[in-house]
Design a protein around this nucleic acid. Structure first.
Lengths: 334, 334
DNA sequence: CTGAAAGCGCTTACAG
DNA sequence: CTGAAAGCGCTTACAG
């Protein structure tokens, strides 16, 4: 900037004015400055400007996801990006892989870079550490899972009631021996979805066989293994599955063993190609785009000074009927 | 930092030393500073430190993708993130949606934030604008498509030869009337893949019917429409498809019309659930993880001062045989 | 309409 | 081992 000022024969302050398109600058001087700018390839240094500036905004937010390459996470990411773009903000994204230590470390480096706020799909179980950061001026919004205690806004899917609706949908076919395959119970969403399953089975007065409940499935491979075991030891009439990677594993096993028309299936969270398979894959679909959008809106409101008490916002899931959840009941078995 | 220094009764410089764990600081003083740090919830301001620092590194890179939520883009993203994480760098990601203006705008804001370098899946056709930015100290690596002229390193898939191999694979079944469905020819990868198709058909002395070539397919819906048209007007014996979204659309049409065992298919780029469908979907798979990793490695080398001439690095694609590309030849038609 | 001085939060280059 | 002064690139608050 000094160089530009020297070349244009003006003060630094005038260069600054031209860069910010302050109208009071004389046209000929502005032109001289712009010419110098081009000639020197000058690029304003936003971080320097930010240092002295009153509002202290970096116009950058952090987005901490489970995994940027997971379809759910990346759909959220895109929605956040779009909203941020229209508000001239940039997004620093990172993957947590369910690692709470990594979450703390990433939050720290992002705050050291002075992001204006953070949207977090949290791996942590206790979020009291958030409060001092809020007091120091960083805004937070949690997605997919609520913070505990509720120290900040959260945008979550109606996991429990959505799961319950999915299970009722399965029961409506007349099938009664249902299995549950799901993610690690330490993850709040998995817990809620399992509760929805459990609730509904209890209400219907149906027993849940221990051999028909599998937790801790984190990958397609683990889900395949679990589904394979279950088909061998205690094949159920229908399966409710908590998560898209698990659904993929289960589908693979059902189709490879030729039992896809035999065992009903509803998965939580949509899967790609779900309507091409035969039968189509019935799912309780989440709405990552709506979650990302709402989270970004809330975060910008907080950044802009909203200090109302934090709230949990629920985004409804939606049953997508494609066939696998509507297989007619099997003949009664003892 | 001033507050911390005051509370600990030391100078700012000593606080700085403690934060950077300079060993020469007396243990009792260091302890006092750390206590003050905790008490005040002090967080070092990395952007300020960066301003005065010699190396001028922000330890941040920009990653410009076609769409952060596209499976290919997000797999690249994850690989870049992993490499950057192990080198203490952060990633600012953005979606370009094939918009060259947006690319320029995003590059500009990222440079104003002083990223150390940029990895770009470029939408632009001319990249001469890169040179002045490089001279000003920003490093560039292009992925998926080479810059033109070759002003920076590029990491690309072997599109032309990969496509040629895919088409030869189809021809090996004995099928001869092949169709091509692909993305917009303004996109270099689509152009190269079409060339691979064309090359191989020419070499084999096979005519390519105009009605069997469709370009400009950018979405699943457009692909469905095109496939539908083609099945109606001039059904081919086999289809070669340039891109994963197009493959999804074509698959949907083939399966809905019940012709999935009738018309052979090889897609460029892998699709999810490709091995569950019947027949399984044979693809020429790209390797986005390898591309992202290599790009990140190259970028950090450039950031660290490598000034060797830019090179184009090719990452091989790999034929994944699953059934759709190996359907036995149909009875001869006139 | 334009500029000189001071300061943002930190580090460099010294001095002691 | 510790600190006072100067400066990174910009903006604020003022003066003219």
């Amino acid at each position: 900037m000094k160089d530009v000022a020297a070349l244009a024969g003006v003060s630094a302050k005038t260069v600054s004015r031209v860069m910010h398109e302050v109208p009071s600058v004389a046209p000929d001087i502005a032109a001289r400055v712009r010419a110098a700018t081009l000639k020197l390839g000058y690029r304003p240094n936003l971080t320097a400007s930010n240092l002295r500036r009153g509002d202290r905004r970096t116009h950058t937010i952090g987005l901490l996801l489970e995994d940027v390459s997971n379809p759910y996470s990346s759909a959220v990411h895109r929605a956040v990006e779009d909203y941020c773009r229209s508000h001239r903000m940039l997004v620093l994204a990172g993957s947590l892989d369910e690692d709470a230590d990594r979450e703390r470390a990433l939050v720290r480096t992002l705050i050291e870079r002075r992001v204006d706020g953070l949207i977090i799909m949290s791996a942590a179980k206790d979020h009291r550490w958030v409060v001092p950061e809020q007091l120091a001026g960083t805004s937070f919004v949690f997605i997919d899972r609520e913070p505990s205690p509720i120290v900040a806004d959260a945008v979550v899917t109606d996991n429990r009631s959505g799961a319950a609706a999915a299970v009722r949908h399965l029961l409506a076919t007349g099938r009664r021996r249902l299995a549950y395959l799901g993610d690690d119970l330490s993850i709040a969403t998995a817990r809620e979805r399992f509760r929805g399953f459990q609730d509904t089975m209890d209400t219907a007065g149906l027993p849940v066989d221990d051999r028909s409940v599998r937790h801790g499935l984190r990958t397609v491979e683990q889900a395949q293994q679990a589904a394979q075991d279950m088909l061998t030891t205690a094949p159920p009439e229908a399966m409710f599955v908590s998560q898209n990677l698990v659904t993929l594993g289960v589908l693979e096993v059902l189709h490879k063993s030729g039992r896809q028309h035999d065992i009903a299936l509803v998965g939580f969270d949509d899967v790609p190609l779900g309507d091409i398979l035969r039968p189509g894959v019935t799912v309780m679909a989440q709405n990552p785009a709506a979650i990302g959008l709402r989270a970004a809106e809330l975060l910008l409101e907080r950044i802009n000074g909203d200090t109302s008490p934090p709230q949990v916002h629920t985004v409804p899931s939606r049953l997508v009927v494609r066939g696998s959840g509507e297989l007619p009941a099997v003949a009664a078995t003892p």
